[in-house]
C-alpha cells in the first residue's frame, strides 16, 4: 500500500504543478498541434476549470449521498418496507439510462450551464449509492441484528451503531462509483455550457487541436484516478475489521 500512496502523491504533485504552470509543459503538447496552433488551452485557466469540475462533482455526490442513504434507510425500516422491492427495481432500471441522456434531458428544465449538469449528476449519482446502501443494510446478518436487539438497543441506536457502521464500506463503494461516473458526466456537461474540464476537450475537437483534447483528457483522467484511489483507501480503512480473518 505504501507504493500506492506514493504514486498517488506523485500524480497529485505532477497534476498540481501542471495546473499551476501549464506553460511549462507546452513543449510536451506542441507535437500534437498543426499549423502553429496554441499548445496550451488559455480561454479559461485550467486550474479554475479543474476546481469548478471538482466542485460540481463534490456537490452532486454529497447531495446524492445524503438523499440516497436517507431513502435506503427509509425503505429498510418496517414502515417503508412496502416500497423496498419497487425502489430496488427502479434503482436498477434507472442505471440503464445513459448519463448523457439524463444530462441532455435536464436542459429543458434548467436551461444551460452548471445547473442541468448538477441535476443530472445528482439524479444519476443517486442510483449506485442507493443500491449499495440497500445491499449494505441488507447484508447485516440476522444474528447481529438479533444480538443488537437483545442487548437492549433502541431502533435508532441499532441503526446508528450497528447497521450503518456495518453497511459503511459498501455505501462508500457506492459513493466512489457515483463520484467516478460523475467525473465523466461532468466532462460532458461542457456540451451544455457547464464550465468544466470538458471545455478544453470540446474546444480541441471543434478546432481539431489534439493538444487541447489531450491536456483536458489527461487532467480528467488523473483526477479520476486520484479520486478513485483515495476513496478506495477510505473504504479499506472502514472495512479493516473484515481483514486478517483466521
Amino acid at each position: 500500500m505504501k507504493i500506492g500512496a506514493l504514486s498517488r502523491l506523485a500524480v497529485l504533485i505532477l497534476l498540481g504543478v501542471f495546473l499551476a504552470r501549464p506553460d511549462w509543459f507546452g513543449w510536451l503538447f506542441t507535437p500534437l498541434t498543426r499549423n502553429g496552433q496554441a499548445a496550451i488551452y488559455t480561454q479559461n485557466s485550467l486550474l479554475n476549470l479543474t476546481l469548478n469540475h471538482l466542485a460540481i462533482v463534490a456537490a452532486a455526490t454529497l447531495a446524492g449521498s445524503i438523499v440516497a442513504i436517507g431513502l435506503a434507510v427509509l425503505v429498510t425500516r418496517p414502515a417503508g418496507r412496502e416500497f423496498l422491492p419497487l425502489s430496488r427495481t427502479l434503482a436498477n432500471a434507472g442505471q440503464t439510462f445513459p448519463p448523457v441522456a439524463v444530462l441532455a434531458l435536464a436542459v429543458p428544465v434548467l436551461g444551460f450551464g452548471a445547473a442541468p449538469t448538477l441535476l443530472a449528476l445528482f439524479l444519476y449519482g443517486l442510483l449506485p449509492i442507493f443500491e449499495n446502501a440497500l445491499a449494505g443494510l441488507a447484508s447485516v446478518s440476522p444474528d447481529v441484528q438479533e444480538a443488537a436487539r437483545g442487548t437492549g438497543m433502541t431502533d435508532g441506536q441499532r441503526l446508528l451503531r450497528v447497521e450503518l457502521p456495518l453497511a459503511l464500506p459498501t455505501i462508500l463503494a457506492g459513493i466512489r462509483i457515483s463520484a467516478i461516473i460523475s467525473m465523466g458526466t461532468a466532462t460532458i456537461g461542457s456540451t451544455v455550457a457547464a464550465s468544466t474540464l470538458g471545455e478544453t476537450i470540446i474546444a480541441g475537437l471543434i478546432n481539431s487541436n489534439l493538444a487541447f483534447v489531450a491536456q483536458g483528457a489527461l487532467v480528467v483522467g488523473a483526477l479520476a484516478i486520484i479520486v478513485n484511489t483515495s476513496l478506495f483507501a477510505i473504504e479499506r480503512h472502514f472495512s479493516r475489521y473484515r481483514r486478517d480473518q483466521r
Binding site: L32, I180, M183, G184, T185, T187, I188, G198, I201, G204, L205, L210, V213, A214, G216, A217, L218, V220, G221, A224, I225, V227, N228
Partner: peptide, 20 residues
C-alpha cells in the same frame, strides 16, 4: 480498472492522437 475510471470523453479524446 484504472482505464475504467477515465471518463469516456477523455478516453475517446486520448485515443484520437495515436489513431491519427
Amino acid at each position: 480498472s484504472a482505464v475504467q475510471t477515465i471518463p469516456s470523453i477523455a478516453l475517446f479524446g486520448l485515443l484520437i492522437a495515436p489513431l491519427a
